[in-house]
Design a protein around this nucleic acid. Structure first.
Lengths: 213, 213, 213, 213
DNA sequence: GATGAATGAGAGTTCATTCAT
DNA sequence: GATGAATGAACTCTCATTCAT
């Protein structure tokens, strides 16, 4: 499904998955503490529990690790969200639930999201599109939800506004991590969710609906 | 006024300012193309038009360059905004004008804003606070504008909402740069301004005011 | 036993010892020719037969090499001396034999002793004490020998004089290296040993013993 | 009289002498604290009270400063000694007085002597002989004194022994500075002078004289 | 005669990557 | 499949020296 394949010298698929899982976990911790560029492959190998030689049996280059990290984080975020959101119904309430679910997942995976957010730019021109694509897939989820709410007449949004609103939701989630130094000092997560949801959707409902009546 | 002083071996203040200006300009271009970590001090010196030795007459370390870059960009953004915004009146219209002005400045200084946005995290624990402080000052500008509009009864926002709305304005501006790969393909700047302003403030006005009536 | 540990990235202890031995040998030659500060780490690596990268697998900094050099030289001098001196008897004859043995070892290891003598001062405040301690241990050897001869009534020395005489012996040995430009032109080693021994101990024996009678 | 000339761009001899005096004073302080190699020309210029450009009006290279330092220190030591020693009489008592005078001068000029002692080796092959020559001149002073005492029958020394005894006196003086970490903790200067004089000459007098009788 | 900005060769050190074992 | 010693290009930063003013 359009995922970039990272080649490995090792044949055993199970082993690859296991070792790469360990690598990613170690890498996230280290990237979070020191950033991608300040983290050495040796450190990653050590924190992963195997030697530098073994590390390179499972990847071709340091950048592969960054790609695996980004890839894995997106998958986790998406999976965790899908666990919480049932798409059978799509009323406005469900849109709000989805937003809240997303914000909660971001909060849970704060370190990971922040790392991905700050380091993805270091991916090569070859690997970056794969990550951007995943970001757009995330956006598409909210677009779809908003669109259905509009179709049901619960929200008044042009298609341009839907697009941008979806982007905004995504960004407000990430903002919770990369502005933690300011936001998490002043707001609890629940409060942040409430206020942001109000700002995002508040006006779009009551406002215009009352205008319609 | 709380600005971090970067020491120089050169005494001539005018010269320092001139050379640092050249350095910052060269650095922004290079950081934009390759990122801070992939840019070498020699490249910066060369692009600045002087030798590596001369570069180090005006800074102590590579990180100083990054700090100067961030510092200079914030000052530019703020100055450019203040040129456009007259704070005599503070009606809702003026808030919108300020937002538009900010978005336009961000658009003009796209490369700079993007660089600062992506690389500021590489600043040392010592220098970072100075940059975060500037970010908060920018936020405070919009907080103040929103607050006045609320005081005049043109907007309905709790103080929490004011805070967060100001943050949102800021990052929606930055988003125009770091999501350019998606946004600038689909929207013109003016369109982006219109739609985001509508999403940001649209509901807060008509909506609740009509609700009040 | 109070030796300063120099950490290495390499695990194989045998290999560490081997490589460091090669390093020290190369370094002594180069330090002798050009001094510590004028010798580059690259030169040391090349003369040691490995790459600069490999060099830094076995040390942390250039200063570590200097420490290893000093440490190794002291150990060699001490070992070589102990090979020659049997401490079973401690008559005056044995003291003279020990002095001669020491002077001979110094002569054999001229380059090393000179290097250590001239460059030890470049050690950091952290490493220096370890080297000074070794110097005092050497002094203590002669102090002990002199003391026993005094106890046997073969020498007349106050404890202050013992102390200083031991220092003098040490220094006269080193002097053979750092005044080679003058001394080794005029004296053979054996002659130097004879004359210095006479000056050091000559008077302390016959003289006062006759005074006693 | 065989002194190495250090060329200067400046014509005014008085000025040259004055500036070089300032340079040497500053350099000694800095060399003492950090060593020759770790001291920069900029630091010397600054500590001398003039600019780096001016510094180079009075010398050709950094090494010239080291030469001037060594040269100046030798002259000072010699002058100070000659102030104290009247060579009219030359009995054994006068030899002892000369030794004491020398040790006292060394003690007074501890920093300078130590610096010269440790850094002279950094002089180029061209300049070194000029300094060694001065060291030999100092040795010659004591040789002469000892020789006269021998001629008067107050000391029993072969010419070889005279040579070496003179060397020993010199380096016992220097030893007071470069072994300060050990010696100056245990001995006062006067005590050191007494004990060393006793060790140097004690036996040569009473001993053999009594043997003669 | 004094200044100090400019220079660039060269220093110590790091680290992604390889490959023999 | 695992190891870790070896590599060397490339990095940041220093500093003796020069020369236009």
């Amino acid at each position: 499904m359009g995922k970039k394949e990272v080649p490995s010298l090792v044949k055993d698929e199970k082993l690859i998955e296991k070792r790469r899982g360990e690598m990613v976990k170690a890498a996230v911790t280290l990237f979070k503490a020191n950033g991608f560029h300040r983290t050495t492959t040796r450190e990653i190998a050590k924190a992963s529990g195997f030697s530098i030689g073994t590390l390179y049996e499972y990847i071709r280059s340091k950048e592969d690790i960054l790609y695996l990290v980004c890839d894995s984080i997106y998958d986790s975020v998406k999976n965790k969200m899908q666990e919480q959101v049932r798409e059978t119904d799509c009323t406005l309430v469900h849109v709000k639930q989805a937003i809240a679910a997303y914000f909660k997942v971001v909060d849970e995976m704060q370190d990971e999201v922040l790392v991905m957010y700050q380091e993805a730019k270091s991916l090569s021109r070859e690997a970056l599109p794969y990550v951007l694509k995943k970001e757009l897939e995330m956006t598409a989820i909210f677009e779809e939800l908003l669109k259905r709410a509009v179709d049901r007449g619960e929200l008044m949004l042009s298609s341009d506004e839907i697009r941008l609103a979806a982007h905004n939701i995504l960004i407000h989630g990430q903002m919770w991590t990369f502005r933690r130094w300011s936001l998490q000092r002043e707001y609890s997560l629940d409060h942040y969710i409430d206020v942001q949801t109000e700002l995002l959707l508040g006006g779009l409902v009551g406002a215009r609906m009352s205008a319609q009546s």
